[in-house]
Design a protein around this nucleic acid. Structure first.
Lengths: 195, 195
DNA sequence: TATATAGGTGTACGATCGTACACCTTCAAG
DNA sequence: CTTGAAGGTGTACGATCGTACACCTATATA
């Protein structure tokens, strides 16, 4: 009967190396990392990790990481499902938030929310928003726009009178540009960090 | 008068390589990337990028990336400050959300919010929460807890009668454990993605 | 035109790379 | 105990690595 290979332990070791070094290891480095005396032994787990999409191999044989290694966050199910037991924690998938939230990095920016105009939409002052430039907003998209020289963030809309921006705060009202309006970008995500 | 070196272009080229390969390049690869004929020319920009904390060099001379390269998101100021002009877009800092939001990756999990008990705190169904296990919650921390066998997420509190959990939704009331309560973890961040 | 500064080319060397091949070891099941 | 499957050791080779050294080039200014 064959020996078993602890692939989860290899994954954890690779993640630790990445966090420390900011690059992928050579086969010799992996041998040391996994506790092997010969770098040739590394080929088996490496090929398994490639099949499982944790690693990629370049045309010249260099190993690179995928987001399943570089991503730092273990992803579970719903709050109601709760936390898994320790036995279930073996091969939890990880996610890289940058890649999950951002489709076009060259066009996406992180901005800090400074007003409360969207508070009823669950966007609070101090929150961060990911804003993607260049798209065409649909009705009800949240946009960051420059209206008559002032930057603001609101729901985008259009009617027979033209373009308008709606707040998600009953203390504020609909606005329409008097002179100019330029869409800076469409809000793609909100991030809130608790201290 | 000396020639100038476009360090911003080098950064962009390195970010592109990382996105494609999932690893840091060798000096020869960097020579090709930067358009140099000799890998020795790479040493100057590499040393500058190390000084600027974009790259790190290991004890054996291997180059690794910092989050200023691996992070995918350009970070600006507030919504009210708006977007910079193209001239100001040269050396925008990037952020890696995983590293920004997560202090202890080995103890942090991403869960999906399935109820509306915290909606008045701006946490909506479908949102993601980053939950860190192992800490001791303070009053008003948002916690994921198992109360009498059911997992839930609410504000944590303590009084002379003991421990309680408060919702941020006026349709729900304070709860106290009848039989058991275990804190799963403390909510450290909320992430909402708009489709 | 000459100059100084900063960037870039070319070569070579010991170290390390990925790969290939032969061989050995562990472990559960029969 | 034997067996077979899967994992691991050891060695060697051409390719590539990081580093060091000598030298060359581009550019604005005086």
């Amino acid at each position: 009967m064959p020996r078993t290979l602890d692939i989860g332990e290899k994954i954890a070791q690779l993640r630790s190396f990445y966090k420390q070094e900011g690059r992928a290891p050579s086969y010799a480095e992996m041998a040391g990392l996994f506790g092997y005396k010969s770098k040739n032994a590394v080929y088996n787990p490496v090929n398994k990790l490639i099949d499982l999409n944790y690693l990629i191999r370049s045309a010249k044989g260099r190993i690179g990481f995928t987001a399943k290694i570089t991503g730092g966050i273990a992803i579970l199910g719903s709050v109601q499902a709760g936390f898994p037991s320790p036995a279930e924690e073996e091969l939890i998938d990880t996610i890289n938030l940058d890649e999950f939230l951002v489709a076009r990095p060259e066009a996406t920016y992180l901005l800090t929310v400074s007003g409360d105009s969207m508070i009823e939409a669950g966007i609070h002052p101090g929150d961060l928003v990911l804003v993607e430039k260049g798209g065409v907003p649909k009705k009800s998209d949240i946009v960051v726009a420059q209206v008559d020289g002032e930057w603001t963030m609101k729901y985008f809309g259009r009617d027979k009178e033209g373009v308008y921006l709606d707040p998600a705060n009953s203390s504020y009202t609909r606005i329409r540009p008097e002179r100019s309006m330029a869409i800076g970008g469409i809000v793609k995500a909100v991030v809130r960090k608790y201290a």
